[in-house]
Amino acid sequence: MSADIQSTAAAAVEHDGGGETMLPVPHRVTGRREESHDCVTLRLEPCGRALPPFAPGQFAMLARPGVGEIAISISGDPSARDGSLTNTIRDVGAVSRALCRTRPGHVIGVRGPYGTSWGLDTAVGRDLVIVAGGVGLAPVRPILLGALAARDAYRRIVLVAGARSPAELLFRDQLADWAARPDVAVELTIDQPAAGWDGAVGFVTEPLAQLRLAPAQTVAFVCGPEPMMRFSASVLLSKGMAAGDIRVSLERNMKCGAGLCGHCQLGPLLLCRDGPVVDYARAQALLDVREL
């Protein structure tokens, strides 16, 4: 056959560390933390070969042999260069449940990094507004960790996070640490009344609507259930932000994460390759179409 096909075959073998695109790389669970009644954060370290470093916003395909494999965004410190990975998983199905039930010492399979990143480096010198809903706080945590590690590179940093109840707020200790910092503004709000909570009660768009923004100076990172992202983007647009400065993290069914299985399409986008982070100028029209 033609030469370029042969070189593709060679490249295929070389690209995925001598293995195949779909072959998981074994990682051991070295840390496990229960964030809420149905969310667990796992710290993973490679058993042998490490994967390339993950950027904030990217995801891994996590496999429990015999059960299945799902796409999970990284939720940890992006500057870690020891090959370790941090992922926060919510128990919503068979595979996520199996992953949540792993314990330190267990081995799971990991493939990645896949997908587009939040592009924190393109927001240098600007205000960062991070809007998270529910478990959406996990994929944006690396933005905060990365920005705080180079705090002077950014102007304002604002986190607006909503959850159903105080018990379902993730990373509560870290949220408190961030809120205590004078160089970060943290607005937390819960949807449902809860005893013992003296913070804000209301949907995440409510504190968002009251933010004073310099729209031309701001980059917004929005993550959570799709309607929450639409409603939040609507508030940000009404404040004068350009759609291209609002970045959302989108989700669809993924079987491979690598652009081969065709499942994660959203119109013209393959979310494993053109996403999950997509700017709202591209995403808005697509999210408005039912059953796309």
């Binding site: 149905d38 128990d91 919503v92 809903g133 529910g134 949807d191 768009t205 409510e206 959570g224």
Partner: peptide
């Protein structure tokens, strides 16, 4: 109206689990 939309959003229980 804005308050109504937010309240409706809360009613959707968007952060609820499929389970």
């Amino acid at each position: 109206l804005a308050r109504l939309q937010s309240t409706r959003s809360r009613l959707l229980d968007l952060y609820g689990s499929p389970r």
